[in-house]
């Protein structure tokens, strides 16, 4: 019943809404009247020129476009973070830095000066290319402590890919082993529901 979601994030995409919620440091270029309450550090009634504050990406898009603020790289995408990714992409904990590291990164790049944006885009691409090999090998590996530790370094995008890939490998194996009749299973939602429900029933 599920249609394959396209890659292009649509208006209702929960992932894209989450990715556009991460904060970027911004500098106010032009005074924005009446909205002083957004800047916790100042007592002014207005957002004064030169103030620095963190804005969510979705707000920064609009304000940068109108030259009201200037956006900077957040810590996860800063020069030093990029150097680390260039040197050793595989061991960085992307999940901790930014759950949707690649999605948010592409959005951040759209706010930066062309030169820096290109550098960031290139780093994101290389990082993903290198790490995707890890994602595949993780999806084939037997579950062990080490695998679980390495799984936690994956960003949400990588994790989704890995889980999907794990299911597919199992299906390929099932097919290769020559079992023709596929097994009819309870729907995922139903079995999850029953799992949640059973312990409670016992407790009553």
């Amino acid at each position: 019943m599920k249609l394959n979601p396209s890659y292009e994030p649509n208006y209702f995409s929960l992932e894209d809404i989450c990715a556009t919620n991460s904060a970027v440091p911004c500098r106010v270029e032009m005074m924005i009247p009446n909205l002083g309450e957004m800047d916790r550090g100042s007592h002014s009634e207005h957002l004064e020129t030169g103030r620095r504050l963190e804005l969510p990406l979705w707000m920064a898009f609009n304000l940068v476009k109108r030259h009201l603020v200037k956006a900077d790289c957040s810590k996860a995408y800063s020069q030093s973070a990029r150097e680390i990714l260039k040197a050793e992409p595989a061991v960085v904990d992307l999940m901790k830095q930014e759950p949707f590291y690649y999605e948010s990164g592409v959005h951040v790049a759209s706010l930066l000066e062309p030169e820096e944006a290109n550098d960031l885009r290139k780093v994101l691409q290389n990082t993903f290319q290198t790490r995707s090999k890890d994602v595949i090998s993780l999806s084939q590996a037997e579950l062990s402590k080490e695998v679980i530790v390495r799984e936690q370094l994956l960003s949400k995008e990588e994790k989704t890919l890995m889980l999907e890939s794990r299911v597919k490998w199992a299906e390929v194996e099932h097919w290769l082993s020559g079992k023709l009749t596929s097994r009819e299973l309870a729907a995922v939602s139903v079995s999850n529901y029953l799992k949640r429900k059973r312990p409670r029933d016992d407790a009553e």
Binding site: M30, M31, I32, P33, N62, L63, L68
Partner: peptide, 10 residues
């Protein structure tokens, strides 16, 4: 006030 309006609109 245009900046304020744009921000609130966003």
């Amino acid at each position: 006030y245009l900046g304020t309006v744009h921000l609130r609109h966003a």
